[in-house]
Structures are given as C-alpha cells and as structure tokens.
Amino acid sequence: MTLKELNKKCSCFARKLQKGSISEKCRIHHGPLSESCQAGKIKICKVTGDRKLCARMASLGVLPGEEAELICPQKGSQCLLKIHGGTLSLDQTTSNNIIVQSV
C-alpha cells in the first residue's frame, strides 16, 4: 500500500466539515474550554484567535472534531488537556480560544 493510498483512508475533519457533520454535533452546549467546569471528555468544536496560536494548537493536535479529556478544570484559568496521548497545559488566553462541547 502506498502512502497516498494510506492517506486517502484517513478521516479528516476538513472532509467532515464539508459535509457539515461537525457543526451539527457541536451546536449544542458549547463554549470556551476555560469555562468548562467539569472534568471529563470533551469534543473540540473550533479553535479561534490569533493565527499563530491556531497553527500551534493544530500542530499539537488540538483540532476541531478531536476528542480530548479535560483533566483539571480551573474555571476561568489555565487547564490540563489530555489529547493524542499527551497532557497539554494551556493558559487562559489559549483555553479561552478553544470552543468545546462536553461529550
């Protein structure tokens, strides 16, 4: 199997976005990550804010449609997010810009 074939198999959010599936799912109960007050599973709906920040978050795997685990909710402050097997520490500015929905 070539890399291209492999790649075709992958499920990417861009495709999902085009189908409009994510926006439907995320419509209910969503808000910035910094305001989530319960630990547990969340789904990322959107990453907003500065272009650099968006890119940085994307490279760390914080992308719309991804599921993550909020470990340490500290309402209005920084938080710990478990995603792609790693634990990220995000400050308030960043977590304000990540719109999530609890799963």
Binding site: L6, K46, C54
Partner: peptide, 24 residues
C-alpha cells in the same frame, strides 16, 4: 468556507495520515 487556516487543515491531514497507519 470552513473557518480555518490552511495550517489547521495540513495538521489535520497529517494526524489523519498517522491515524491511518496506527489503525492498521
């Protein structure tokens, strides 16, 4: 159209590529 920058799409495809490998 999608409310994202190209870099987010690129990152998403890279993660997609990784997932496709891991899932095999």
């Amino acid at each position: 159209t999608m409310d994202v920058y190209p870099e987010a799409i690129i990152a998403d495809h890279r993660y997609g590529f990784i997932k496709s490998i891991i899932r095999q």
